[in-house]
Write a protein that binds this DNA or RNA. Structure first.
Lengths: 336, 336
DNA sequence: ACGGTTCACTGATTCGATTCAGTGAACCGC
DNA sequence: GCGGTTCACTGAATCGAATCAGTGAACCGT
């Protein structure tokens, strides 16, 4: 293993020599602390001439801060989550920080591993869309690191903030709508990673279905359009096809569309489809996918604001509840 | 600015004390170098008991390597590029490295800044989908860092590998197809960031159009579905509506679909649409978007393989040419 | 004019590893 | 049994900053 490439970058020592100051003074000067305006200017000048910029790694080791925010996604196979990750990445850049994006791929064990790695990387904060909100790790991490959760609140963890989806409301919105349209037998397609016992959203589905007198059939959908299509195909092709499919993400709903197309079934005539997320593409389908909309921009802004504030040492600890709206398009009709 | 949080993690020194060895020996042992099998085992044991894991930051400072690969995307607003980034992130994880994903947002200046930041972060390698392949910076970076480009080859840079899209072929495929279908006047919608002078793809369009006797009208499409829709709307609503639109990414084509829907125009009866990328969603639209397909999995695999090999010190320097295929669906018909 | 405070800055230490240049012991062949 | 290797390991230096505990000078009010 060779030593690192020959680095010709200027170090703080060289700037110190160039200005006749000590390295400490240069360090202070460049961060505008405890030094006279005049030397600050002198140091700036010299630094610019030498093309000096503080080495982020050395700085991280010495100060414990990196400027990076960890972003731990539940499953990036999901298009909506891709958009979310992209949005957060961009919003962080606008605040002169950047995101270290990792993908738990729906696996709680991997989620824990990655969370620890992020902590070891000394991220200044962590945004997580938890697969397993009940993992004890969160409490432990939140002790030493600002953690902001998106989606579900972390259990027993002193987070720096939470952007919680009112899934109870979202589920109610969706199921009541289906009920109104006349559906009784509806398939519920949830992502594989609802493996988490008692995942809040699932609990709400059962409760609401009971309240509304719906006959539901919960099916877990694997990741990826192809895989989802296969599962959806099996469901639609079975003897006991439900009249509607409530998909726990728009990506899953896309799989149902694809399966329906393959089988020559029409949406919503043969099968009604309800999404959850409201991805931009949903409006382009024929018929448009009726979905439960979450304000993605609002979520991005809130999460970034919270994590950056906490990373800067402010103490907010706010819980922001996201209210869903039903975005009605054309994918739900009366049962056939 | 408070000092870093109290870290209770074990350091290499503690492991050294626990085993009665020197820190150096522990360092070697954990990496399986120059030490007896027996002490390796003893050190492993002690490390496990203490919960020791090497601090990535300290390691990076000392060794110059981080295990991270930088991924600099052209514009993550594009859905296909989101998929690409996600795929690369996942493929890197499978190789025990992770991606630091940054988004140039189509801006050459930002691209340069971010590339430099990535280098400063001591990434072990860089995958870039260049906005400006001709920037002199690439040559400079490639001197000290394995750089792999996706899309266009970097000019005059000794890269560690290149996954080049045969855009000439892609353009030919698309335009010949349109020509065959009978189109003469076609609008070409390119991303804003084709600002790069003489961007290869654009050059090919002009040349091919001339060869085929097509009357083309190049329009730059801004980022984001909403913005693209607006531009496309203006185009479709103008007096001189072309019979076909050739979009330089599927994301742009989605904007054309949206605009057509708003104006009550039908694809392909009123306007034919040709995409470029072949995003998974394109098959779900009605009609399906005919697009120029690039083997995204192959691209991901090739880029990751090249960059990881180079980061591990191997010397490949291969140029892999990606050949496109026309994926015919239903969005191109005869001119109205 | 004198103790006290502030200011601008310095030298040494620290962060937590990796790596270089040994060092003493064991082992080798002849 | 003697020079030469190899082996297993150590101590010190290094990476490039941030930070702590001063230090001398200027300045303050009384």
């Amino acid at each position: 293993m060779p030593r690192s490439q020959p680095r010709k970058r200027a170090t703080i020592r060289e700037v110190a020599q160039a200005t006749g100051l000590s390295p400490a003074a240069v360090s202070y000067a460049l961060r505008g602390m405890q030094v006279s305006e005049e030397t600050i200017e002198r140091v700036r000048q010299a630094a610019a001439e030498l093309g000096y910029e503080a080495d982020p790694i050395a700085r991280a080791l010495a100060s414990g801060r990196t400027g990076m925010i960890g972003l731990l996604c539940g499953s990036l196979e999901d298009l909506w989550q891709q958009s979310l990750a992209f949005g957060i990445g961009r919003a962080l850049r606008d605040k002169d920080r950047y995101a270290l994006i990792l993908d738990a791929a729906g696996d709680p064990a991997r989620e824990r591993t990655l969370a620890r790695q992020l902590r070891d990387q000394r991220v200044d904060g962590l945004i997580v869309q938890p697969v397993d909100p009940a993992a004890p790790l969160w409490a432990q991490l939140a002790e030493t690191l600002p953690v902001v959760s998106i989606g579900d609140a972390l259990i027993d963890a002193r987070t720096a903030g939470e952007v919680v989806f009112d899934n109870r409301r979202g589920v109610t919105l969706a199921l009541e709508y289906l009920r109104e349209k006349g559906h009784r037998r509806v398939a519920v397609l949830t992502p594989t990673w609802s493996s988490t016992p008692d995942r809040p959203a699932d609990v709400h589905v059962t409760a609401e279905a009971e309240r509304l007198g719906l006959d539901i059939d919960v099916v877990t959908a694997p990741h990826g359009l192809a895989a989802t299509t296969k599962v959806a195909g099996a469901l639609l092709d079975s003897g006991a096809r439900p009249s509607a499919a409530f998909c726990f993400s728009d990506s899953i709903a896309y799989g149902v569309y694809a399966a329906a197309a393959e089988l020559g079934l029409r949406v919503p005539d043969d099968i009604s489809v309800m999404g959850y997320d409201d991805h931009p593409m949903s409006g382009l389908l024929t018929p448009g996918l009726t979905s439960v909309n979450w304000d993605i921009d609002g979520i991005v802004r809130a999460a970034v604001r919270l994590v950056v504030a906490a990373a800067d040492g402010q103490n907010r600890r706010r819980r922001i509840i996201q209210a869903p709206e039903l975005h009605e398009r054309g994918s739900v009709g009366p049962p056939s």
